[in-house]
């Protein structure tokens, strides 16, 4: 089941204005992604941990998410140092591990974790609906937002439908292997899923027409920017300034 384990909660982060979090989340990810200096990216990682703490994310669930990300990065630790040009710090037969390569992977590791953590803390802590509304507010094209919201709404239905089709195949003795029969069956399942998705899309469109839909997706949400949000805004600007400053102003700290 696709779920939003972080979306609902009662932390200071959950109460902060979604627009603020959306914009800061994007800016923070961008700055962290382009930063290179270790001071800057370590500061970003530290800030991201602080955000996760402010959002009171369950450490266990967080660890599970980070495990997937770092599993992917583990591959880079194997491949990059051995293939990156530069002075070798360790040689084993024909394999030379380059110092520069190791630094590069270390940077990637810190940056990825910082970005994933901050995104989880800032964006995953709001329901998809709020993110959609925040996107509307920032004049992201209507069609794009509608696509996202409808995809999100019907993803679950499609998932269920796929589950139903798969069960129907299983109760008649289907088990996946690499035979031609498996590929054919999977083809049928996928084809059927597309047909049903298309039919459902038509019915949903009809339902929308019945309720006066004329191409505009109206929005009910009125955001309210509270006093505490000013504090959040200030803190977020400081966070960006810190990471950016460490990167570009070559802060005397280094």
């Amino acid at each position: 089941m696709i779920a939003e384990p972080f979306a609902f909660g009662d932390s200071p982060m959950h109460r902060a204005d979604p627009r603020l979090r959306a914009v800061f989340g994007a800016a923070f990810a961008f700055v962290t992604a382009v930063a290179w200096e270790f001071d800057a990216i370590l500061a970003a990682l530290f800030l991201a941990v602080a955000m996760a703490a402010a959002a009171r994310l369950s450490p266990w669930r967080l660890a599970k998410r980070l495990f997937f990300v770092n599993g992917f990065i583990a591959l880079l630790w194997i491949v990059v140092p051995a293939t990156y040009p530069g002075r070798a710090v360790f040689s084993l037969g024909p394999v030379h591990l380059s110092a520069d390569g190791l630094w590069v992977v270390a940077r990637i590791t810190i940056k990825s974790n910082a970005i994933v953590l901050s995104t989880l803390a800032l964006l995953a802590t709001m329901p998809m609906a709020s993110l959609g509304q925040a996107m509307y507010f920032f004049r992201v094209p209507q069609k794009l937002v509608m696509l996202i919201l409808l995809t999100y709404r019907y993803m679950f239905v499609m998932e269920k439908e796929y589950g139903r089709l798969l069960r129907a195949a299983r109760v008649r003795g289907f088990s996946a292997d690499t035979s031609m029969n498996t590929w054919r069956t999977l083809g049928y399942l996928l084809g059927m899923l597309f047909v049903r998705a298309d039919q459902r899309a038509r019915r949903v469109h009809q339902a929308m027409l019945c309720r006066g839909f004329s191409g505009r997706y109206p929005s009910l949400d009125a955001f309210c920017f509270r006093k505490t949000d000013w504090a959040w805004a200030a803190a977020m600007v400081c966070a960006l300034a810190l990471v950016g400053g460490l990167e570009w102003a070559k802060w005397p700290l280094s």
Partner: peptide
């Protein structure tokens, strides 16, 4: 509609119920 999943296409229940009135020109 026969299938409620066809009819409820907004993220939350309140959004969905307000969808018609909003389209008919009501203020939020």
């Amino acid at each position: 509609f026969q299938n409620a999943d066809d009819q409820l296409f907004c993220p939350t229940v309140l959004d969905d119920v307000a969808f018609g009135p909003l389209n008919m020109g009501a203020s939020p």
